[in-house]
Design a protein around this nucleic acid. Structure first.
Lengths: 147, 147
DNA sequence: GTAGGATCTAGAGTCGACTCTAGGTCAAGT
DNA sequence: ACTTGACCTAGAGTCGACTCTAGATCCTAC
């Protein structure tokens, strides 16, 4: 079993991408090597394609836009010699991802805080006042919550 | 100085939302209280609106869709008595956010791994093989990108 | 009294990343 | 022979969240 040879459906299953998305990615130039076709004109993927697509899925999941993935793909297609370029792109993306994580963590802090506030309100079955004004209040009561 | 009274432009500046977005949010029912208008028909916001919008910005930044924010807004508008509901919504969102952070962290691991691989390649000035999988994944004895 | 800037409304347009449709081919199973 | 189901292409449609346009109004400054 030298050449595995997977159908688009099988690749979809393995990568989690839809068959539509796979064809779309191909049109977008997101495949390291041109897809082979069988005598009937159907796409035949290899294990390496699956690996590459798996990487793409991860890059997408971390928010890399398709144009950037295409750029990266092109570098890889051009072969050895542009490792610095690839590294730069990856580092840039890494920064974006860490920034994203940081932002989400800050949001999470606030959400946790708010959850805590509501838990308190409910625990003591009381009318707590909220930081943000509910309808009837022309309120000016101090702000509540904050750590 | 009693009632602050901010214009849409000022609110845009403070919340980071565009004036367009502010009007859009209003149409979408994303304001806890209906916006007041001055004699000329222009919107007049209060500090509480800014606080509410700031919260909305944070919820959006953490990926809460506008319909969910609208739901939450409606609960707040209905006033006291639905704290459990609000809490449930917040908890659900919190789970989504932590899931997102987890996923991003996993992506980051892989990206870091790949960055490391490229750094090695460059450091030793060599063309090398690399692997797509993260550390300690038993992978086909395959290599990677680029056929 | 007029130019400039901020604001108003309603509605159209954009962008990214798919997703779906229509209409057709192909291989296997009954 | 025929049905089924996976696959093909080209291109249209969707979705979310804005963003922008046009044409009008209003306030301040000169």
């Amino acid at each position: 079993m030298g050449t595995t040879g997977l159908s688009i459906g099988q690749v979809a299953e393995r990568t989690g991408l839809s068959v539509h998305a796979l064809r779309f990615y191909e049109r977008e130039g997101i495949l390291a090597s041109p897809v082979r076709r069988d005598p009937g004109g159907r796409r035949v993927y290899g294990e390496d394609d699956v690996e590459w697509l798996t990487l793409c899925v991860i890059l997408r999941a971390s928010g890399m836009p398709l144009p950037a993935i295409r750029q990266y793909t092109e570098m890889v297609r051009r072969g050895d010699g542009n490792e610095e370029e690839r590294l730069a792109l990856l580092r840039l993306h890494r920064e974006r991802v860490t920034a994203q994580i940081d932002q989400l963590s800050r949001c999470l802090d606030l959400i946790n805080h708010k959850v805590g506030v509501y838990e308190d309100i409910i625990d003591r079955g009381g009318a707590g006042h909220e930081c943000v004004a509910p309808p009837s209040s022309e309120n000016k009561p101090g702000r509540a919550e904050r750590s």
